[in-house]
Design a protein around this nucleic acid. Structure first.
Lengths: 262, 262
DNA sequence: GCATATGTATTGCTATCCGATACGGCTGCA
DNA sequence: TGCAGCCGTATCGGATAGCAATACATATGC
């Protein structure tokens, strides 16, 4: 007997693993990067499930409200109950709990956009955003992620890790540049991380969005490992990078202290 | 026939329903309203599962990343992959897709807080928020919900429904007031809905938050049923309610037209 | 140091999920 | 107009995959 394990590579015989649940969640996950409602066949194909399995799981997810038929009846979409989970996650996340009041105060002081992103290996996932006065765009939704290697918050987070781990992340990093100025050369990125180690914060120019300067500091956990970063972002039309750094670094550092404390 | 009624023991009757998936999701849902990490026993109790079942499902959800042990090792918490689902939901939601650029433009025009909430029967669920210049609080997270019967957006949405349906929602409504001024009397609420029908928008004073005035218009689907509402909220310290209405109603109406069109 | 909580692990039994197969409706190309 | 190919939906016998009871290691607190 030994093996079949056709569904999941990372696990051998695990008598406690519930395959049905995993398959059902893989159906929800199959909407990643989809840009239109997914048909049963597409879901089956994306998940590697048989058509029948996909059908039954979709049926179940619909009854539970997590999926719904698209407006035109062609394909399925994620549905509102997802946001209930979102709310529970955001509400109970210990970092966000501690950070919320601090971020508000930071935003009040700097009058620029303040973001918090969570460290997740090769990517930084945005959890909250407090817009600036005249925010010009909307692209960043909750759950949106950017490469750790190509954002101020990512550099600040990596600065807390030992070099060996940085190398691992660099090796796995998705090197799709978000802007023409996004760094992709590993050594250039290592240099930014080194700078972040020295300064205690990272400064990024047009790494995520053209015309944007961002400063970030990492939020360490009790063991000193990064759990996320707080960013302040401004416009290069209004700020010289060094002025921005000088102005923002102190209140940002204060905010990080406030988050660590509680 | 056609019952939904989750976790129905006596009647399987639905050979296509995957019980394991439903149970697994009920574990995720068990974090609703929890204010600290949940232990296995608590999860079992909240879901009605046996300890063993809860254990196996939690085990599976941890392997998949959806749950994690809390920092202090006591109990479990929802984890980052939830935000990936959030992102996919927000990104693909047809209403939000159409509304995003329109809301940005609205926010630019009115310079006050702009929210979009989704209609879900007795509650309105916040999906996006664009803060005002000097936002004073942070409480409203994505996925947060307020009673349909006690918010401007809810009144605007209900105004699109036939009276019979309104009565149903009023009957099921959670009448916990959010502020001392929150309406709880069904007839008073019906009056607000009638006003919203007449004006095409609803105006609410301190229904969700003290010191706040909010105006809302509903977003109808192709059949004229409400799918959500767009709100503009301001401070009573700066606005007389009627001035607020006169100033905000036209750009708000324009925004709704923009959302319907595309 | 006993009582009780936590999270973790094993096992035999069978309820539950599995996947091949079939159906009716709709779209769109010929 | 008709046929080909999707779409979502439904059925059913067989065995896999999940089930619940039970036991264990560790941590907390009275």
């Amino acid at each position: 007997m030994t093996e079949n394990d056709h569904s999941d590579p990372s696990k051998g015989a695990d008598g406690m693993f519930n395959q049905s649940l995993a398959r059902g969640l893989s159906v929800l996950e199959s909407f990643r990067d989809a840009d239109r409602p997914l048909s049963l066949a597409q879901i089956a194909s994306r998940t590697g499930l048989t058509r029948s399995a996909a059908q039954r799981l979709v049926h179940t997810l619909r009854k539970l409200g997590y999926l719904t038929l698209a407006d035109d009846g062609r394909g399925f979409l994620l549905n509102l109950p997802i946001l209930d989970l979102t709310h529970d996650y955001l509400r109970m996340n210990p970092v966000l709990r501690r950070a919320s009041p601090v971020l508000l105060e930071l935003r009040r002081q700097v009058q620029e956009r303040v973001d918090l992103s969570l460290f997740d290996g090769v990517r930084m996932v945005y959890a909250t955003r407090l817009q600036s006065k005249r925010e010009a765009f909307f692209a960043t939704l909750v759950g949106h992620s950017v490469p750790t290697t190509g954002s101020s918050g990512g550099w600040a987070a990596l600065a807390l890790l030992p070099d060996a781990e940085i190398d691992q992340i660099l090796a796995r990093a998705p090197l799709r540049p978000l802007t023409p100025r996004s760094l992709t050369d590993p050594d250039a990125i290592r240099a930014q991380i080194a700078t972040a180690r020295r300064d205690g914060h990272a400064l990024a120019l047009e790494q995520v969005l053209m015309g944007e300067v961002a400063i970030a500091m990492a939020i360490p956990d009790a063991d000193g490992r990064p759990v996320g970063s707080v960013h302040v972002a401004g416009s290069l039309a209004e700020w010289a990078p060094e002025d921005f750094r000088r102005r923002m670094a102190p209140p940002l550092a204060e905010a990080i202290r406030g988050i660590r404390a509680s």
